[in-house]
Amino acid sequence: MDIDILDLIDDEDDDNQEEMTAQKVLQIVERAWLNEKFSPEILPHQTDYVDCLLEQIKGMEDNLAKLSKTDPKVDLHKLEMERIKFVITSYLRTRLKKIEYFCVSVLEEESNRLEADAYLSPAELKFAKEFAQNADNHFDTILRHMPQLYNKLDMNKKVIKPNLNSFVFLKCYKHIDSVIIQNTLESQEEEIVLEDGSQHLMPYSSVAEFVKKGAVQLI
């Protein structure tokens, strides 16, 4: 069942003259969601698109409220909206879980990035900092009772880092000339070509930059 709910929005937005259709935004968010779900590390945030989609949903809710309740189309549209909402919440939840789990390493990497290419949205960054502070405060209630030499937590010991070498399934959207795969066992490097539309299984670290550019999709 594929309902073209987005027709509804597109009519609405004609006067806005947006260059991007709602369909396109939804596609971007869905791709971001899948990438986030399967990638071991946190990816650059897509807050603009998420906000845009949420605004569309709000507009649609208002539109639907105007329609008569007996119209069978209303329920179908509502269901489609619920689906979009699920994608958004699941996407943001996945990010939040990663932020919590890899809190220290995420914050550390984030502090090395410029504001323009930050991976976390400002709200996420605030959450991450509060989370780290909060955990530290709690740890400290125990740590301060320990003997003097030992009452600090070693930064390196509390860091949980994502395993960037874990394997991921991916699909290519563009032709990529060279992807380098590190063979850790024999400490060799292998270079391969990814064809447009092909699917592969390989370590995440080899394709990380292409995932962030949107050239490949994790599946």
């Binding site: 709000k58 689906r83 943001l92």
Partner: peptide
């Protein structure tokens, strides 16, 4: 999150099958 009052992330935890 989002345009006005935010979004409750603890809702919609499972993909919806029906309304």
């Amino acid at each position: 999150i989002g345009p006005d009052t935010g979004l409750n992330l603890t809702q919609d935890t499972k993909p919806p099958k029906s309304l």
